[in-house]
Design a protein around this nucleic acid. Structure first.
Length: 668
RNA sequence: GGGGUUGUAGCUCAGUCGGUUAGAGUGCCAGCCUGUCACGCUGGAAGUCGCGGGUUCGAGCCCCGUCAGCCCCGCCA
């Protein structure tokens, strides 16, 4: 095979994100020899070498893992489009390490991407793709930069237990049964919160851990049941000390995404965040603010809005002003789309008012003339005075669009908070297409960091009719609000802060309670009595009574952070083996049923066998009118019987829960 | 738990008003070509239209149910 020209650059080296990999073996000198290993996925049939020496490989040529040895030489026909297009490897040896079946999903980056369920099922192949390779490397870099940063700042890296104690409050725990102590359970940590506080009591003044956390709650694009946090805790600090430390880390991380972070980041009180942006994690890439226009409708004939104005602040009318001709000409169809999404967020409708320039001739002809380009869903209540007042109040002198929401602060914030960003994004995208400057609405290239501070200490929980800790029950109340702990918990502020980046909460933390007395008051406020507190958190109260230092910290969501640095909108793209929205792993099929023996050892009884036995009883005493369904049941195939089935009985569709169980069938 | 959306060849998708034998690209297989590098040319195989019912003379298309993926609400101290 010597001197067999073998243009390696043409294949998997490229496929693999291979420019960098090729560089490791393709030196600039044209006379160096070396060995290289690589995969050849989907070895192109048309380019399959014809020489006899290659024939032997053809049965397994679909996708190969191979190694080649040869001499790097300058190519006769160079390809300027490839990083290594100037050189080729003149083979002296070629080994096929392993044949491969045709991949079920494309692993080339060019061309189509398979559906996500297939990508997840064959994650080991999906991970070969450049995009995911890059994301995984980025994630590793983020972790390394983080560890180095904190090490440089005298932090100590800890490992805290994964098998721990279930605690009340917060998310649902993942439970792990104890074999040694039948009937007792460990809980996987929702976060190592208590451990990191206890380590402060122990005198480790700077704690860092990159650790797994587990919460048994429903998933979102930015939420997995097991996820990774960068946990930080420090003694003798105020919130600005913690924030400065984290800002320093962001300064080092941002360059990984060719961005910069410029501390100090904006500090925005929670109250203002909700008032101006309708969110506790505002996306400041969009500068537009929500404004209160309730008073303008005080004497209006427009009942919907006037009622709010008469409600003494119970309900308000709030609005967002989108400036510009583009916004003013928003079509009815598009507005309907916005209204639909507003409705899914709980709005009754989406009142609007727009001043556009171009009006369609046909609509004017239909008598729907819009003089001055004015159009509104409540036009008949819109007096010239009101129009002028709105223009003045919203500082809306020219063309543009106003969207209104009416209701409680919660309702209007949710609707306008969502639309503010959504519409700004699409206006900016449209502006970009028409080569206009999109910046007034949305700067998609920005990295908009901010701190949201002064969170409330408590939230009122309707379901349980009591206050719950907004952040967690170890959060220090604001020094000025200590007496509100008992007097008016709802108004009590916390020394808690969230780090927000581009509309995502990437981190949250607080200054903790460091004395047992305040901690007890806190537990009382959320309905945890002395006895229960003693029982569940005795170790913490003990620890706090032995000279615990003032301390505080923060946890960063590593997955979200890497997601934003990678420029993707889903954390599955930055997790090697993620779960689906239904908290399932399509590759391993976890979670799965386990052996009866395993359950017995844990003294755990599965409900399914019990259901089956109930079925047997049912069969034995079956009344005549149920003979028919039973006969239908007997005809079900194994597949059909694996879940819920339907059958037609006397003209009616009947739903039947069926469970497949191992063992003898009905006939036996 | 609720709402929305998607499911057709290995993969990505099209499929009209319900009407003949369900198509395209890509991949796969075979042959030809060879300095190609998303090579090119010719031919071929490949479909439980997610699954189960129903309506109809007739269903990929309509109805009911169900499963799975995705997004959102609830939930996530």
């Amino acid at each position: 095979m010597a001197n067999c020209a073998f243009p390696m650059q043409a294949r998997r080296c490229v496929w693999w994100g291979g420019a960098a990999r090729c560089a490791t073996w393709a030196p600039s000198s044209s006379s160096t020899s070396g060995t290289v290993g690589a995969w050849c996925s989907s070895w192109p049939t048309r380019r399959r070498p014809r020489r006899n020496s290659w024939r032997a490989y053809r049965p397994c040529a679909a996708s190969l893992c191979w190694g080649a040895e040869g001499v790097v030489a300058e190519r006769e026909a160079k390809n300027p489009n490839l990083a290594t297009g100037d050189v080729e490897l003149r083979l002296t040896d070629l080994k096929i390490f392993n044949a491969a079946a045709t991949p079920p999903i494309p692993v080339e980056d060019a061309g189509n991407e398979a559906n996500e369920d297939l990508r997840l099922k064959y994650r080991f192949l999906d991970l070969r793709r450049d995009k995911l390779q890059r994301n995984m490397v980025l994630r590793s870099e983020v972790a390394n930069v983080t560890r180095n940063y904190f090490r440089k700042n005298d932090f100590i890296d800890f490992e805290t237990p994964i098998l721990g104690r279930s605690t009340p409050e917060g998310a649902r725990d993942y439970l792990v049964p104890s074999r040694v102590h039948p009937g007792d359970f460990f809980a996987l940590p929702q976060s190592p919160q208590l451990y990191k506080q206890l380590l402060q009591v122990s005198g480790f003044e700077r704690y860092i851990q990159i650790c797994r956390c587990f919460r048994d709650e429903d998933l979102r694009a930015d939420r997995q049941p097991d996820f990774t946090q960068i946990e930080v805790e420090m003694s003798f600090v105020r919130q600005q000390d913690v924030q400065a430390m984290i800002e320093g880390l962001m300064v080092e991380l941002a360059p990984l995404a060719d961005q910069t972070a410029q501390p100090p980041f904006l500090r925005l009180p929670f109250k203002d965040a909700m008032e101006w942006y309708g969110s506790d994690k505002p996306d400041l890439r969009c500068p537009l603010k929500i404004q209160d226009v309730t008073e303008l409708f005080a004497g209006s004939d427009f009942n919907l809005f006037r009622v709010a104005a008469d409600s003494h602040g119970q309900r308000r009318v709030r609005a967002v002003w989108f400036p510009g001709e583009e916004a003013g000409n928003t079509s009815r169809k598009v507005l309907d789309g916005y209204q639909e999404s507003a409705k899914t967020l709980g709005a009754g409708g989406l009142p609007y008012l727009k001043w556009g320039k171009s009006q369609s001739v046909s609509r004017i002809a239909e008598g729907d003339a819009e003089k001055d380009g004015l159009s509104s869903s409540f036009k008949k209540f819109l007096t010239p005075a009101l129009e002028a007042a709105l223009r003045d109040h919203l500082q809306a002198p020219n063309e543009g669009l106003i969207l209104f929401a009416v209701g409680t602060d919660d309702q209007t914030s949710r609707v306008l908070g969502d639309l503010r960003v959504r519409i700004a994004k699409s206006l900016a995208a449209a502006a970009e297409l028409s080569k206009a400057d999109p910046t007034p609405w949305f700067d998609k290239n920005a990295f908009a960091f901010l701190w949201v501070v002064d969170f409330p200490l408590f939230d009122w929980n309707e379901e349980n009719q009591r206050f719950v800790a907004c952040h967690h029950p170890f959060t220090s109340p604001h020094a000025d609000d200590m007496e509100l702990l008992e007097a008016n918990p709802g108004a009590c502020r916390a020394v808690a802060y969230d780090l927000v980046l581009n509309g995502y909460e990437v981190g949250g933390g607080s200054i903790r309670i460091h004395d047992a007395d305040t901690q007890s008051r806190m537990f009382r406020a959320i309905g945890i009595g002395e006895t229960e507190a003693r029982e569940k958190f005795g170790f913490l109260l003990d620890a706090l009574s032995y000279g615990a230092p003032p301390h505080g910290g923060l946890a960063l969501g590593l997955d979200r952070l890497v997601m934003l640095l990678a420029g993707v909108d889903n954390i599955r793209e930055v997790i090697a083996f993620p779960k689906t929205a239904q908290a399932r792993c399509l590759m391993t099929d976890a979670p799965n049923a386990v052996d009866a023996k395993q359950l017995r050892e844990l003294r755990i009884q599965s409900e399914q066998p019990q259901q089956y036995r109930a079925g047997v009883m049912f069969f034995e005493s079956v009344p005549a009118e149920l003979q028919a369904p039973i006969s239908v049941l007997r005809t079900l195939s194994m597949n059909q019987a694996s879940s819920t089935s339907t059958m037609v009985l006397d003209g009616e569709i009947v739903k039947v829960e069926t469970t497949r169980i191992p063992g003898p069938g009905f006939e036996d």
